[in-house]
Design a protein around this nucleic acid. Structure first.
Lengths: 150, 150
DNA sequence: CTGTGTGCAAACGGTTTGCAAGACT
DNA sequence: AGTCTTGCAAACCGTTTGCACACAG
């Protein structure tokens, strides 16, 4: 009736969903925590240095499992792969520059009013962190308005 | 020195970029105008009824050409294909429900303050219509909060 | 010991590309 | 006539799946 431990270990999260603890899962979770904007591919790359037989499908399967267990979340960034975050630290927006491809982060709180407004007008509850917002980054905007641009 | 015709025809748009006028381009542009949320695949489907030899790569190539010519734009809607719009009528947000997959449209103006805020804080000029925003639609939100949900 | 998880290879959906034949101008 | 565009097939990228073996419980 009372939630006694808000400090569950990652093992407990997995076990709670009936998943087993494997070295691969430990490694993949650690990689998500360490790497900057980890994609399945970059996670594999990173882990193959120490675990040469690790397979890409194992990475995919376990990212799904870790997500179902509430340990991580993902965000869609452009056309390529999704990027993953620890569930706690994903509270930021991704701004994806259509011109140079740069990925800029911004506080999720910027979107709070927007989310409220959308909810008020449509009933839709948005999660602005789930997918990147596209546009033009500050540098490219400057460059594109410069007469010398072309 | 003065722009004398703001009413350029689609042919003029293409010619201005050095592109030729072909029956395929005419058909594809018409399909983008008619179909509800046209994807490359649905455009092909539609046009093959009257033009059985039309090829998917032709659709892709011409969607790119029409876009470069300023006639159409595209938006990323979820994991699948992009959807296309005539350049004039794309001023709406796409809200993509993560639960049921439904696609809800909303006025682009809802995001105006959000865009201003992002610009003020990061210099990034966002185009909120370029990609779907994810979340939970009104129906699913209701359903998920219902005790009987699980 | 049982069944979940792993590695590998092959399939998959969406998109792009090389090439020769065809069509716009 | 010359070049851009088309159709076709094959390559491509990210992701998923079927299978037999391995390992956590």
């Amino acid at each position: 009736m009372m939630q006694q431990s808000s400090e569950r270990t990652w093992q407990e999260h997995l076990r709670a969903k009936g998943h087993r603890i494997t070295p691969q899962r430990k490694l993949i979770l650690a990689a998500v925590a360490q790497l900057p904007h980890p994609t399945p591919e970059s996670i594999l790359q990173h882990l193959r240095q120490t675990e040469p037989t690790l397979n890409l499908s194992t990475v995919y399967r376990n990212l799904t499992v870790l997500q179902e267990s509430g340990l991580i979340t993902h965000a869609h960034i452009g056309t390529g792969s999704a990027v993953y975050h620890l569930a706690d630290e994903h509270a930021h927006l991704h701004l994806n520059c259509l011109n140079c491809g740069r990925l800029v982060s911004a506080a999720a709180s910027i979107a709070a009013d927007f989310a409220r407004e959308v909810s008020a007008q449509t009933g839709f509850l948005i999660d602005p962190t789930h997918a990147a917002v596209y546009g033009t980054c500050a540098d490219c905007a400057r460059e594109l308005t410069t007469p010398a641009a072309r």
